[in-house]
């Protein structure tokens, strides 16, 4: 069963074609590295799949159904997206997690969220006292890890990861990306300019040119 089928997508902004007759398929458990030079439309793929943009031509099928403005909400509740944008909000880190868990769609995740947050903080080399700090005071690398943990507590199995380790040191980059790439239950689409020494040899590459 295919998760996503992208058929002959075309997307242009103003006069510039970002994607032209672009097609690909995502199967459960796939690990796909989306590569290509800056501005070629890598992030646009995520934006199209999440319904933030509509394609000018072609179609996107999710779980066997055509993606429309009405049903794109289903995708957003199955995919965990970590953006390259470090503007993840303001206020205390603990409130940031609480806001995510407060959304009606995520209320079922509240029960053991605290333990899971603590586990992930430790896994990604963060101290628990970060929960009391303000997001605005965090470094780029700390913000990235907080955004990753926020995606993980959603307990989803499809991940869209857009340059999520750009502000981290090499060892931590490897650790975090391997965490995603070596989990068989995860379907991961990721954008990164780094090459990881993952044991997973089945990483597919989607090269935009």
């Amino acid at each position: 069963m295919e998760l996503f089928r992208i058929e002959n997508i075309t997307k242009q902004f103003s006069e510039k074609f970002v994607l032209q007759n672009f097609s690909f398929v995502v199967l459960p458990g796939d690990k796909i590295n989306i590569s290509g030079y800056s501005g070629i439309g890598k992030t646009t793929i995520f934006r199209l799949l999440l319904g933030f943009e509509r394609p000018d031509a072609g179609k996107i099928i999710f779980d066997g159904e055509d993606l429309t403005d009405e049903n794109v909400w289903v995708v957003r509740r199955k995919v965990a997206y970590v953006s390259q944008d470090l503007n993840i909000g303001k206020g205390r880190v603990s409130d940031f997690f609480q806001e995510t868990l407060h959304y009606k769609a995520n209320q079922h995740l509240r029960t053991d969220a605290k333990n899971r947050i603590t586990e992930y903080l430790s896994l990604f080399n963060l101290q628990t006292d970060i929960l009391t700090r303000q997001i605005e005071e965090l470094s780029g690398g700390e913000k990235q890890r907080i955004a990753i943990i926020n995606a993980l507590i959603l307990d989803r199995s499809i991940f869209f990861l857009d340059e999520i380790t750009s502000a981290l040191d090499p060892a931590l980059k490897e650790k975090i990306m391997n965490f995603f790439l070596e989990n068989k239950n995860f379907t991961v689409l990721y954008i990164s300019h780094d090459i990881y020494s993952s044991k997973n040899t089945k990483i597919k590459t989607l090269k935009l040119c």
Binding site: L50, F52, R76, R77, V79, A80, Y81, S83, D85, N87, I88, G89, T100, H102, Y103, K104, A105, N106, N150, A151, L154
Partner: peptide, 16 residues
């Protein structure tokens, strides 16, 4: 807008 869309991607309704 990026922050708003980020919240939508986390499962927030439009209102939330």
């Amino acid at each position: 807008e990026q922050l708003y869309l980020y919240k939508l991607s986390l499962g927030a309704s439009q209102f939330e």
